[in-house]
Design a protein around this nucleic acid. Structure first.
Lengths: 126, 126
DNA sequence: TGTTTATTTAGCCAAGTGTCTAAGTATTAT
DNA sequence: ATAATACTTAGACACTTGGCTAAATAAACA
């Protein structure tokens, strides 16, 4: 009962659902990329990631200063939740916009977006 | 995105998860039975049912003074959520206790439980 | 018709939650 | 060693949510 509640609570926030969806699409993301995607402070993004980890939906690995997050696919039975979310958001406008942003964030971004540029530079060091 | 959030929010409360699980087990329950199961006031139970209905997880039908609730199984893609919850709670102590309570509530209960007795009498009128 | 019963809705309050700023921790660069 | 960088944690605040009581609504009964 507790683990189910943790999962549902974790996913009942819009930004966390967006993060989860992004991880379905992109397998692994760095903290700064997530921060950029959902447009909150790094502190808020970090808090959110803690909730997803605590719910056993996401895993974390550290490489130097950088922290990378992936879906916790070894968590039994949770994979169909990920599939279900992917399916449900397949044609959702907001979710599609996120995927477009994600492309930019994880690829060479425009130089005028100083923060994004920095983000790309650091994260491609993996 | 909105419908997913509504679903996750609806299921992120313990009592609502218990109600949902009970409906998985028992197909249809009356408001008074739900009230008895989760041990809150009728007003609170009614509030919870409103949330589940609003999330399109549950449907309501009225018969005279009595209101019956069932899972909204025609809601596309939500059936595997029900199945997943059932699976996850298969051996959960708290959920099993609920199923035992549910047996009592939906069957002839002990006479000393005056409220339960009344409940059974009314609900068997369907 | 008035009374009783079952349920829903409204209003209030305490607890929970998302976001921010600031401080703290760990890693890298100078 | 100090400074810079990336991220986490702490504390505060505004907003949301679960539970209660009371009022309102609908249906059945006398």
């Amino acid at each position: 009962m507790e683990s189910l509640l943790l999962i549902f609570k974790a996913l009942s926030d819009r930004n966390r659902l967006r993060i989860l969806h992004a991880l379905v699409a992109q397998k692994e993301l760095c903290a700064c990329q997530i921060t950029e995607l959902i447009q909150v402070t790094n502190a808020t993004a970090s808090r959110h990631m803690g909730v997803l980890i605590n719910a056993n939906l996401v895993q974390r690995r550290k490489k130097g200063r950088w922290v990378y997050y992936q879906l916790h696919t070894e968590n039994q039975g949770v994979e169909n939740v990920f599939t279900w979310i992917e399916k449900k958001l397949k044609e959702d406008p907001e979710a599609l916009l996120d995927l477009i942003s994600l492309e930019e964030i994880t690829r060479c971004g425009p130089e005028e977006i100083c923060k994004k540029h920095k983000t790309l530079k650091f994260c491609s060091k993996q």
